[in-house]
Nucleic acid binder design. Structure first.
Lengths: 100, 100
DNA sequence: TAAACATATTAGAAAATTCGAATATGCTAA
DNA sequence: TTAGCATATTCGAATTTTCTAATATGTTTA
């Protein structure tokens, strides 16, 4: 069996482990969308959204393409989609404590 | 449909988004295990392992119980198991970039 | 070409994470 | 009780993350 690369897996999880990036990815996977729209949906600033997109782009979770004046983003990887499904699905049954 | 709590989901992912914690959790889910063993398996210091276990305990991912001189840990939540299955399974097919 | 718009990048401050060192706590055995 | 082992907690330094402000880049339209 292959050696598990925990660093690599942690990097992938880290890219998702931020509420704004999570919302961005969750939005993108419903359909390609431009940065401007992501700003409105997340309520975060232009720079902030752009930097989060940069993180997601760098790890290969999303792809971007230009559409005239706009830059649109699409979900690049199945794993991201699987993790989101998994965590959303579980959500209601979760007993994990996230606040004290 | 229920409003998605991205902060909560990010907290859960953040607890997993560290190579040592990931290895700890991945080890625990194969069977209950004491801290000393986790130190050996991860190669991290006593304090380091204990602090990571604290993070996992605080969010409710693991439980601990005393066994004489030792403290043993067990996996507490199904979601953690699901996410690990998901990411390990995908691993070989992954095209995500995690280094530059 | 100039102005306007959309996005990316850079810089720097604040906050959070991580880890080793030191110390505290709890159990067991002598 | 005392010593010894196992674990937890605290502290502080180094690193990383996150965000705003400012600036740069690329596209479109007048």
């Amino acid at each position: 069996m292959a050696m598990i690369d925990y660093q690599k897996e942690a990097d992938i999880l880290k890219a998702l482990a931020n509420p704004i990036r999570l919302k961005i990815v969750d939005t993108i996977r419903k359909g390609d969308i431009c940065v401007k729209s992501l700003e409105e949906i997340t309520g975060a600033s232009q720079s902030c959204v752009s930097q989060h997109l940069s993180v997601l782009r760098n790890i290969g979770m999303v792809n971007s393409y230009r559409d005239g004046n706009l830059v649109c983003y699409s979900l690049n990887h199945r794993l991201t989609d699987k993790i989101l499904n998994c965590i959303h699905e579980e959500y209601d049954h979760s007993t994990l404590k996230t606040e004290e």
